[in-house]
Amino acid sequence: MPEPPTSADRIAALEEEVAQLRRAVTAHAVVDQAMGVVVGYARVGPDTAWEILRDVSQRTNTKLREIAEHVVQWPRCGWLPQEVRGALDTAVLRRAAQAGRPLRRPERPELPDRPGRAAR
């Protein structure tokens, strides 16, 4: 018969649970911020922005949190990794087609696409 957990074991388990919850809250906040960027970029609602981020994550085989971190930094640095940018634009165009909107590439932000490149 297994021994019951000690107080120290229970404290360690609770500390690990608290750490996991903190990471989840942080990741959730970054995803929410990235959704806001996508809403502004693609002129879509929050639900569609979530679907676009999820699609980019799946198509690039990258964790959603990592995609969100890139997207949140994009307006500040003006650059997205090429694979992420391509998947983002493809997802936006796909959602536009599903919604019956004209198929056109979203407007580029005023910031440069790559470090060292002037804005258009």
Rank of each mutant, 00 (worst) to 15 (best):
P2C: 01
L64E: 05
R23H: 12
D47G: 10
P109Y: 04
L53D: 02
E15N: 13
L21F: 02
R22M: 08
A42V: 03
V44R: 10
Y41A: 00
T26K: 14
A34K: 01
A24H: 06
V37T: 10
L88F: 02
E66Y: 12
R117P: 00
T26I: 10
V92Q: 07
V84C: 05
E107V: 00
S57I: 09
W74E: 02
P75G: 14
G86V: 03
A99Q: 13
C77R: 12
D47M: 11
G45Y: 13
T6P: 05
P46N: 14
L64C: 00
V39R: 14
V18S: 06
L21K: 07
V38H: 11
H28L: 03
A87Q: 14
V25W: 07
R114M: 07
T26N: 05
H70A: 08
A118N: 02
V18L: 13
P46I: 12
W74F: 11
R117Q: 14
A24W: 02
A119F: 03
V71E: 08
T62R: 10
G116W: 03
P106W: 13
R54Q: 11
P112C: 05
V25E: 15
I52N: 09
V30I: 11
A12N: 14
R95H: 11
P81G: 09
D113N: 07
R23C: 02
L53V: 03
R117A: 06
R120A: 07
R59N: 13
D113T: 01
E83V: 11
D9Y: 14
E110V: 04
K63G: 04
G40N: 07
Q73F: 01
E83T: 09
A68G: 04
R95F: 11
V31A: 06
P81A: 08
I11F: 01
V71M: 15
R117C: 04
I52R: 08
P115C: 00
A42Y: 09
P109Q: 12
R22A: 15
A97Q: 10
A118Q: 12
Q20P: 00
R23D: 15
A24L: 05
Q73I: 02
V39G: 04
Q82P: 00
R104S: 08
A19Q: 14
A27V: 05
Q33W: 03
A29T: 03
H70C: 08
V44Q: 07
D9M: 15
V72T: 14
M1R: 08
D89E: 13
E66G: 04
M35D: 05
V30F: 04
Q82H: 12
D89R: 13
